[in-house]
């Protein structure tokens, strides 16, 4: 249990996917303008991350690895994720329309989101078990959500301020992201020390 908590907290804070691992920067910069879209997008990402891990882990551990096909990891994982996203879209539209209305518009974006492919591959680099992988993916998704929601708040302040012309738009957004990321550096090693 303690071990799971450490993985979860580490994935959310000290190893935040966006702010310290640089994965999922595209949606982080692109969809963080409004709080509601930022939140919807991160819900969809978390959902797909956990699902993708649940699906890719057994494929790699029981199909690719025993047959010495480990090098096919990249190609198989991206196809599984792409199919999964399509499948989730169809299932949600058919059976849970309210959830589809809330998350549906973000789903096409997620196939090419490197955070999703990243988390599924990282679970193997870190040699996690199945449960640990699921917890890690959940943490990665929640960390993505935290970064998105915090940054949406920061951006709404930037909108209202007078920025020098050359820095308008993307540059000031990136510099603001640097400051948010700086504050997350303060969380380094928090997980191990918190549950000592």
């Amino acid at each position: 249990m303690k071990e799971m908590l450490i993985i979860l907290v580490a994935a959310i804070l000290s190893e935040n996917f966006v702010l310290s691992k640089f994965m999922g920067i595209c949606p982080f910069l692109g969809v963080s303008k409004k709080l509601s879209t930022a939140f919807g997008m991160s819900c969809a990402v978390t959902f797909v991350m956990v699902l993708a891990t649940a699906a890719t882990y057994p494929i790699y551990a029981y199909l690719l690895e025993p047959n010495e096909l480990g090098y096919l990891q990249t190609i198989v994982f991206i196809l599984v994720i792409a199919t999964l996203v399509q499948f989730v879209e169809i299932v949600l539209r058919k059976f849970i329309p309210p959830l589809y209305n809330a998350l549906g518009i973000y789903l096409p974006l997620i196939t090419t989101n490197c955070a999703v492919l990243g988390v599924t591959i990282l679970n193997f680099t870190k040699e996690f078990t199945y449960t640990q992988s699921l917890v890690n993916s959940l943490g990665a998704g929640l960390g993505f959500m935290l970064a998105m929601v915090l940054f949406a708040g920061v951006r709404s302040r930037i909108e209202a301020s007078d920025v020098p012309k050359a820095l308008k738009g993307l540059p000031i957004t990136l510099i603001a992201a640097a400051l948010v990321s700086l504050s997350f550096l303060g969380f380094s090693n928090i997980a191990n020390n918190l549950f000592k």
Binding site: C26, L29, G30, V31, K33, T37, G40, K168, L170
Partner: peptide, 27 residues
């Protein structure tokens, strides 16, 4: 012109994605 879009707005994988459209309207 300076760069206008940020992030995935330029990625053509998300053509017709409403998350991007709403973002551009707000820009």
């Amino acid at each position: 012109k300076p760069v206008e879009h940020t992030g995935c707005g330029n990625c053509h994988a998300c053509d017709g994605c409403s998350a991007c459209e709403s973002k551009e309207e707000n820009a």
